[in-house]
């Protein structure tokens, strides 16, 4: 077995073991932390499809994270207010069912990413970073001035949405859901990486002129990857909103985009389990350093600086060595 595969397995099992141990020790807060790791990792897996596979440095992925979160609010608030979702042109009820909310989030995230990506991908380099940032901020200010969902204050969903056969209010059950979705997304990312699509995308990232000369247009490949990326991150947003039972514009702010990117870089850009390792490290730092000092992000910054300067492959790269072309 390859060293990285082994490392990935260890990380996956460790993330599963923490909440089980916490349950045995009766420490529900640790389960919530592990759930947060799984959900942020999912957002990172989404970003990594754009950033790692496609080489698209998007500083606007909070847009998709927030779209997922707000989709949850849009679908679930009518139910808690005993109102229909819409009455025209057809009467449609809201839903408290997670599978339906996830579907809504994925579709909304994909549509959002298609619109933002179609325009942003006409630029490259620093302009791409800036334009994705600008789109993210546009949605952020839109949410702030959208009174129906609490504007700047956001909106609370009092009861966590349901999943058939599970009690989602039980932290362990909810963790299991988030973990299963994360594994599914990792499987998707893995398949993408080894597919003809992933091969063309890697070529477009590493040698764009050559790929065009081979008869493959990089624009459409990148757009497709950006859409998939946005959809996965939106799904993470819906889960994150359910974890907190609260949605606010901060999910859309560029700080959130930055956090998702930071955790991908911490773990390893383009590495399958990079976002998982990164999210775990991020949450651990936030929890323990945050307990020591209010200024924990200063230390996060120093660690990030160290990784960017000395360990370009992030945590995974440091532990598993450089990436080998998989065959």
């Amino acid at each position: 077995m390859r060293r990285e595969t082994l490392l990935n397995l260890v990380i996956a099992l460790a993330l599963l073991a923490v909440p089980l141990a916490a349950q045995a020790l009766d420490e529900p807060f640790a389960i919530t932390l592990a759930t947060k790791v799984a959900i942020l990792a999912l957002a990172g897996v989404g970003l990594n499809i754009a950033l790692g596979l496609g080489g698209m440095v998007s500083l606007g992925h909070a847009a998709f994270f927030g779209i997922g979160g707000y989709m949850m609010a849009v679908l679930a608030t009518p139910v808690q207010a005993y109102e229909p979702l819409m009455t025209w042109p057809i009467e449609l009820a809201g839903t408290k069912s997670m599978p339906l909310i996830w579907l809504g989030a994925v579709v909304a995230g994909a549509v959002g990413a298609l619109a933002i990506g179609a325009l942003s991908l006409r630029t490259s380099g620093v302009y791409f970073i800036m334009i994705t940032l600008a789109f993210g901020q546009m949605l952020y200010y839109f949410a702030i001035s959208w009174p129906a969902y609490g504007g700047e204050d956001g909106i609370a969903i009092y009861v966590r949405n349901g999943f058939p056969g599970l009690n989602t209010l039980d932290p362990l059950h909810f963790f299991a859901l988030a973990y299963a979705v994360l594994l599914a997304a990792l499987w998707l990312a893995h398949r993408l990486g080894g597919s003809p699509f992933g091969l063309a995308l890697a070529g477009a990232r590493q040698a764009p002129a050559r790929v065009a000369a081979l008869g493959i247009r990089p624009y459409r490949l990148k757009l497709a990857a950006f859409v998939l990326s946005g959809a996965v991150t939106a799904l993470a947003g819906a889960l994150y909103a359910d974890l907190n039972r609260f949605v606010s514009p901060s999910m859309l702010s560029w700080h959130t985009s930055g956090e998702i990117m930071v955790l991908v870089i911490l773990g390893g850009v383009g590495r399958l389990f990079g976002p998982v390792a990164g999210a775990a490290l991020f949450i651990l730092l936030e929890h323990f350093l945050g307990g020591i000092s209010e200024y924990w992000q200063l230390f996060l910054g120093l660690i990030l600086l160290g990784i960017v300067l000395f360990a370009r492959g992030g945590l995974i790269g440091t532990l598993a060595g450089r990436e080998v072309p998989h065959d």
Partner: peptide
Amino acid sequence: ALAVQGARGGSFRLFRRAL
């Protein structure tokens, strides 16, 4: 393989294993 793929198409197959 990428060059073959460019000539034959199929760069939008998302789930098959290329190699």
